[in-house]
Design a protein around this nucleic acid. Structure first.
Length: 446
RNA sequence: GUCCCCGUCGUCCAGCGGUCUAGGAUACCGGGCUUUCAAUCCGGAAACGGGGGUUCGAAUCCCCCCGGGGACACCA
């Protein structure tokens, strides 16, 4: 008599929940648990519940709740119902009373303990791990109500999952050991047990459970680093779940394909390199205008350029820059930094540029500065024409000056087509930087 | 230590008894294209933890070992 029959469950509407404890930011492990629950609910047309497990009042904070909510919103995981466990203490106490009256629980040192049978075993019919047997003698009686009257996790969880009609408990593997205790409580109360699916953990590069010491693990941290939510969702989904050989999934595809049988059983290592690759993929797929919006904000936030300068740049030019730069940027932050040369002020030459910027380049650079400065609004084509004319006159091959020019104008040896870059920076800025460099070269460089 | 889970390229996955000379992705290496870097295209190196079974046949099923991880709170 363990829970509802399979038939009944298949017919019932799916109800799942994500139940974080607000003791810190939402990390990627929790985010994936939330994502799997959310996808499962959306795939089956069910309900996704967000329940804040704040029974430990000493460790729970409102800031953490805000952070978790902000993280889920950013990821695009919307919930249909919301609860806070602390709002339900009265219910928890009433159920504890009932257990007490039944003799299934007893008081000791002010706390209420649930009694675990001495004999026998409980089998957890896990959807992923299969039947897992726990001998009762391995389990210890557990506190369900602390001496201050607040409920503990294993108890509140059972009461709430039952009251909220949760059909599938999808949670991290670290909870598998708690499950027999929870099942025993369900049984003592005469309640049907939900279905359980314990998903494997996410590990750090050292193969231990992912934690702060592995570096960036907070969801919001990834946002700050210029990761797209589409990419993080895609990446997290592929950690432990797959659909054939497909790697890139839109949110819609994920909802369409996701289901529990395709979830693996082994823990997986969080691989930043692959996240970055996926991020790049999503940067390429995102509508330019949307990406440009993110870049605009990032430009200011990362201090690449103050807001007025970004405004002055204009939407068209920003769009064009994003279009050209996104192919060579892994993150939005990367892109913003690569766009530095679009703004006023000097650009810093990369180390080792002295070898590139040799004094004999001075006449050419001077000539180019003058020619390009005379253009009033150069397109890439105009720029190219002007540059080639000057070089033809001086009989200097483009190859000789292309890299130096690029460095002088952008402060980088790499980037989009030289002429596109010149057009993007604009004749005025190009001329300024070239003549400054020419002066420096004329003084004999160094 | 006890209990539980897991074990295919460095990493993420495919594989669900024969079609596997083990496939894809990423990362890495080499090449093409290009004024550079990307993008893109071509190519390369790279794995079934070990040992027993079962079977005509095992990466796929069973057992043992080894290895990794998780849980052992009046935390969740």
């Amino acid at each position: 008599m363990q829970g509802p029959s399979v038939q009944w469950v298949l017919m019932a509407a799916v109800r799942v929940r994500f139940a974080p404890s607000p003791t810190g930011y939402l990390h990627v492990g929790g985010a994936r648990t939330a994502l799997f629950n959310w996808l499962f609910a959306r795939h089956h047309g069910g309900t996704f519940i967000l329940r804040i497990e704040d029974t430990d009042r000493t460790r729970s904070t409102d800031e953490a709740i805000d952070q978790i909510i902000a993280s889920l919103r950013w990821l695009g995981l919307d919930w249909d119902e919301f609860y806070r466990q602390t709002d339900r203490f009265a219910v928890h106490r009433a159920v504890a009373e009932q257990l007490l009256r039944q003799g299934a629980a007893y008081e000791h040192e002010g706390a209420v303990w649930f009694r675990i049978p001495k004999e026998g075993a409980t089998v957890v019919p896990d959807l992923l791990a299969g039947d897992v047997r726990f001998q009762h003698r391995e389990l210890k009686d557990l506190v369900i109500l602390r001496s201050d009257g607040t409920p503990t996790y294993n108890f509140a969880c059972v009461v709430d999952d039952h009251d909220m009609g949760v059909t599938h408990v999808i949670r991290g593997d670290e909870h598998l050991n708690n499950t027999p205790k929870q099942m025993l409580i369900y049984q003592a109360l005469g309640w049907p047990t939900p279905l359980f699916a314990h998903i494997p953990l996410i590990l750090g590069p050292d193969k231990s459970k992912l934690s702060k010491r592995h570096g960036a693990v907070s969801v919001l941290e990834y946002e700050k680093r210029g990761i797209l939510p589409e990419a993080l969702v895609n990446f997290l989904a592929r950690l432990g779940w797959s659909h054939g050989d497909q790697e890139v999934f839109s949110r819609e595809e994920l909802i369409q394909y996701f289901d529990l049988p395709d979830v693996g059983k082994s823990a997986s290592v969080f691989d930043e390199a692959k996240l970055l690759w996926l991020n790049h993929e999503w940067m390429k797929r995102k509508p330019v205008a949307e990406l440009a919006g993110l870049v605009r904000r990032c430009l200011v936030e990362t201090g690449v350029a103050p807001a007025p300068e970004v405004e002055e740049l204009g939407a068209q030019r920003l769009l064009k820059a994003v279009e050209l730069l996104r192919d060579r940027s892994k993150t939005v932050v990367d892109l913003a930094h690569a766009a530095r040369f679009l703004f006023p002020g000097e650009v810093e030459w990369p180390p080792g540029s002295e070898e590139l910027l040799r004094a004999e380049l001075a006449p050419a650079v001077r000539a180019l500065a003058e020619a390009l400065g005379n253009l009033d609004n150069g397109s890439a084509e105009d720029m190219e024409k002007a540059v080639r004319e000057v070089l033809a006159r001086l009989e200097i091959p483009l190859k000789l000056v292309a890299l130096p020019m690029r460095v002088i104008v952008t402060g980088s040896r790499v980037g989009p087509s030289l002429f596109e870059v010149l057009a993007l920076a604009g004749p005025k800025r190009v001329a300024e930087r070239l003549s400054r460099a020419a002066a420096w070269l004329e003084k004999g460089a160094r």
